[in-house]
């Protein structure tokens, strides 16, 4: 039962946020969409309905390869992060004593709250040729020469996995502690061993948490420019890196916009896939 106030009053409360979102999100997004169909002639922008940018994207290897690289890295990161985060969340939820759980969880995700830039830089300290790992291994006599760890896809994936393990630990933990303890008791009571309990009861029930976390991972990972730029170097470029190249050196806004639209399309496809899966899961 809402107060006797007219709905005009409700719109009054909503108007500032709606206007803000429309003016600074929806409108720029539409302009960007239109921009992706424009072309550059010399340095002048020509609006229109040209598919040139999208065709160029299919023809030029460094463009479509960026899409592939982005997808490969993102999928690797998502799978590795889920596999590493699940046991961690499980241990915190079920093995760490109740009174320590909040503290352990807080500590486990504390570095999550660091700027992308600082976190990637910190990994550079660890992975660089003169970095901590190489120096430690050489100092221990295990290596004669420093190995190249930074400026590789391995470094990019490591930096990403570090971040997303924390994010996924949070979402999966939240899902695990919501499960009533009696589910596990009931499964054990009916004769299931620890693995059977996990496989038949806990895993299906935590699937929504996993899918949600994995979707977030995908969205944030595929759109990130900083981590591949600092840790991956310029050996292979991801889509955000290519977008920044267009903006920087060439000021090719139409091509950058087209690439951004492709990025959005990828995220939308993954969203549709995962939401369909979720709905099937609920049935």
């Amino acid at each position: 039962m809402t107060p006797a106030g007219p709905s005009r009053q409700g719109w009054g409360f909503l108007a500032p946020a709606l206007i803000w979102t429309c003016a600074f999100f929806i409108l720029p997004f539409l302009v960007m969409g239109a921009m992706s169909f424009a072309t550059l002639e010399g340095r002048t922008l020509v609006w229109g309905l040209s598919l040139e940018n999208y065709i160029e994207l299919g023809q030029k290897a460094y463009l479509w390869r960026a899409v592939l690289v982005s997808l490969e890295i993102t999928l690797t990161v998502t799978v590795v992060s889920v596999v590493l985060a699940y046991p961690l969340a499980w241990i915190i939820a079920y093995r760490v004593p109740q009174r320590w759980q909040r503290l352990v969880l807080l500590l486990a995700i504390l570095p999550f709250w660091t700027s992308y830039v600082v976190r990637s830089y910190a990994w550079l300290l660890v992975l660089a040729r003169e970095g901590v790992i190489n120096q430690t291994l050489i100092g221990a006599g295990l290596l004669a020469e420093p190995v190249t760890l930074a400026n590789t896809r391995f470094a990019t994936v490591t930096g990403f996995v570090h971040f997303f393990v924390m994010l996924l630990t949070l979402t999966i933990y939240a899902n695990l502690v919501q499960l009533p303890a009696n589910y596990r008791k009931a499964a054990t009571d009916l004769g299931a061993n620890a693995f059977q309990t996990f496989w038949h009861v806990i895993l299906p029930l935590t699937l929504p948490g996993i899918v949600t976390g994995a979707f977030l991972t995908f969205v944030l990972c595929i759109g990130d420019y900083v981590t591949p730029q600092i840790l991956g170097g310029n050996n292979e470029l991801t889509v955000p890196q290519v977008i920044m190249v267009q903006l920087g050196r060439r000021a090719d806004f139409p091509l950058a916009s087209a690439l951004a639209i492709v990025l959005m399309a990828l995220v939308t496809v993954v969203y549709l896939l995962s939401s369909r899966w979720l709905r099937l899961d609920r049935l």
Partner: peptide
């Protein structure tokens, strides 16, 4: 929330 920061920034920059 569902759009990457890069795209939010790019859109605003263009406008």
């Amino acid at each position: 929330i569902t759009v990457s920061y890069l795209i939010v920034g790019l859109g605003l920059l263009i406008v």
